[in-house]
Amino acid sequence: MTTPFPTARAVRATPEGLLWEPSERWVRGRKGDVTVVDSRHPVLVWEPDVPVPLYAFPREEVRQDLLRPAKNPSTGAHTGSLIFYDLEVDGDLLENAAWTFPADDLAGHIAFEWFRRSGKGLDHWYEEEEEIFIHPRDPHKRVDAVPSSRHVQVEIGGTVVADTHRPVLLFETGLPTRYYVPREDVRLDLLEPTDHSTGCPYKGTAAYWSLRGGTDVPPNVVWSYAAPLPAVGAVQGLLAFYNEAVDITMDGERLERPVTPFTKALSARPGNRQ
């Protein structure tokens, strides 16, 4: 007779539309040198229409002595949440840094903002001994970097800026395939580096380039990971282009430009006249 794998966990739903599941990862969150969260029983929570999860933690695994009832609660910022907390550490006050969800299933848990840039989040988050950036990684999402011999050409405004038979294709759940091209196969003379950067919990920190004189092209349309996370190490140093803003031809077939959450963001960037 067989028995279910003892650690198998199913995603559960609440009447409020939240999805959640227990996680077995050891998660810590720090503000400066102070550990605010130290949890071996975190819960992953997905809010309606939000593509990435967040963590909620049992109250006893949170430094509740550092929390204060929010002076200006961000009512409506999270699904049905009415109770918010400000976080005070060494005289530094972060407004609405934490909150509770109204769902009975999540009673006794406190969730935290992750985005440090918002002025609300903690400085550092760790799963086991690995630092995690931007948001928790989704256990139901895959990111695969696969070397290929397919013929990929990239055009911007009718000019071929990349042509390769050795791309690395990056497949990420919920996003279009990204085509990473060796630098030797890219017209680097047409690009100029910018000071823009982004972080990804699956890939690492990316640097960006814009098209020289490309007034009709969104800035920061090209990116690269100099030191990607090990799971996608195959893209190290290669350049990728936003499919949403350039023309890509693969094996002689022109691909349609996808419409993604990045489409609106690209069109709204300063300098873009599209």
Rank of each mutant, 00 (worst) to 15 (best):
D92L: 15
T177V: 15
H140K: 03
P228D: 07
D185T: 06
V221P: 10
R12M: 13
S197L: 04
S149W: 00
R12K: 14
P22S: 02
V37K: 08
P261L: 10
E155N: 13
Y55A: 01
L66V: 05
E131L: 02
P4M: 12
R166Y: 05
P270S: 08
V168A: 14
E60Q: 09
I83L: 15
T75V: 15
R12Q: 15
D92I: 11
L122S: 02
L19Y: 06
E256V: 04
V52K: 05
P15K: 08
Y179G: 08
Q64G: 02
T263M: 06
G214M: 11
R40Y: 03
R12V: 08
Y55L: 14
H124T: 05
L106Y: 01
L93T: 03
A8G: 04
G199H: 00
K120W: 03
G199P: 01
N72Y: 06
D65W: 10
S39C: 14
V45G: 00
Y180T: 09
V50T: 06
L18Q: 08
H124R: 15
Q153M: 13
H41Q: 13
F5L: 15
F5P: 03
G76Y: 06
P69C: 06
W114N: 00
I248W: 04
I134V: 15
F84H: 08
T215D: 15
Y126R: 10
H165W: 11
R25I: 04
L93N: 02
A107V: 10
F57I: 01
G213D: 10
A234C: 09
V154D: 09
R212Y: 11
E184A: 15
P4Q: 12
D163G: 13
G252N: 12
P228H: 02
N96Q: 11
F115E: 01
G237A: 07
V36H: 10
H196S: 09
D216H: 13
S197K: 03
E129T: 13
L255I: 07
P73K: 05
I132Y: 03
V160Q: 13
P139D: 03
G252T: 03
E256K: 08
P51R: 04
T2L: 13
P69H: 09
V161G: 14
W46V: 03
H135A: 03
L266S: 01
D123Y: 02
E113A: 00
G121S: 01
I134G: 01
R30A: 05
D163H: 12
Y225D: 12
